[in-house]
Design a binder for these strands. Structure first.
Length: 303
DNA sequence: TCTTACGACCTATCCACAACCTGAG
DNA sequence: TTCTCAGGTTGTGGATAGGTCGTAA
């Protein structure tokens, strides 16, 4: 969604009550509760979130459980209620517990609440409590449905988690007496560069900083795939070809190229088929709306 | 290079009302 | 604990307004 458009549109006509909340906006440092916070270490692959090739939907912003998953084709974040509703919006706001789990090729991060009675009024500035109540009311309507969240929101959350899990994590995170919890990720760039020095260029294109790669990029289309393995990005099949002068066996190369092409095809197909259209939650309402009389597109009273 | 005009595109908003949800008893 | 009921909330589609973007002059 175009934010500028949204803003200007809001100014154009009477502002409609927003349906969803941005947790990022509401989770100011002062309001986050830290007392009794329990954190477990994320197991791996935390860096992978930086490559979300599919822009997330801003809708469905608030849900019960935040889950991050990745596989070899994709990286995505979900909110789901697969835990039976143990985590709620209140829980998210409170963020009393952040737990992570890992199994096979999937990692998940759950944020649950240890004090569900926390004040929503406080978190929402006392003015949008009705909104929060509404959001809470929606819990578990669709227990296993995929949800999308803002990418920036996820990144911010991940940064916080990384800081908590790192050895040099700011101890203020666990100190209930400390009011400022604004954590900042401090990287030792020199160490990173040294550690990486024998592993080839830092960037896909050695001259330019790496951002989200374009799937149409020839570089990707010719065999370099993105995978997340134990927290670091790898170039599994063609890495040697690119950086070390090739793998040598032409036949093998062709086979792999074919597999790559098929893989890229599947990837592109997957991306194209991704559901960007509005999802109908209640078919009966759609039927009713279709039958409802209209004037210039607006519903009108029946005679 | 900058400004302006224009068309194409995009999307929040509006409406009524049945379905749905929630809390009280 | 379960049921009932009243009242509040949500979701639905088509047309539209008005902003954005790209292009040409």
């Amino acid at each position: 969604m175009n934010t500028r458009r949204f803003k200007s549109r809001k100014s154009r006509t009477r502002a409609k009550k927003p349906k969803f909340l941005s947790l990022r906006l509401q989770l100011s440092p002062d309001e986050s509760k830290t007392a009794g916070k329990q954190t477990e270490m994320p197991t791996s692959a935390d860096a992978c979130h930086q490559l979300d090739l599919f822009p997330p939907h801003p809708e469905n912003l608030v849900e019960e459980k935040y889950t991050y998953t990745h596989d070899q084709d994709n990286v995505a974040y979900f909110f789901s209620a697969g835990d039976g509703g143990a985590s709620t919006l209140t829980g998210l706001l409170d963020a009393s517990a952040i737990t992570t789990s890992s199994s096979n090729n999937k990692n998940s991060i759950s944020i649950t609440s240890l004090s569900p009675s926390a004040s929503l009024t406080y978190a929402y500035g006392g003015q949008n409590s009705e909104l929060a109540r509404t959001a809470l009311r929606n819990k578990e309507r669709e227990p296993s449905e995929e949800k999308w969240v803002y990418y920036s929101e996820v990144v911010e959350r991940k940064v916080k988690e990384e800081e908590v899990t790192s050895g040099a994590a700011d101890l203020r995170w666990k100190d209930p007496s400390t009011k400022t919890q604004r954590l900042s990720l401090k990287l030792d760039y020199e160490d990173i560069l040294n550690a990486w020095s024998d592993k080839g260029p830092l960037y896909i294109h050695a001259e330019t900083p790496q951002t989200v790669p374009d799937i149409n990029d020839e570089f990707l289309a010719h065999g370099v795939s993105w995978g997340c393995n134990g927290g670091s990005w790898t170039v599994p099949e063609m890495a040697g070809n690119i950086y070390n002068g090739g793998i040598g066996v032409k036949k093998e190369e062709e086979m792999k190229l074919g597999q790559r092409e098929a893989s890229v095809l599947r990837y592109k197909e997957k991306r194209q088929n991704r559901l960007f259209a509005k999802k109908i939650r209640y078919q009966v309402r759609k039927l009713n709306a279709e039958k409802r009389p209209r004037v210039k597109g607006r519903f009108v009273k029946r005679d």
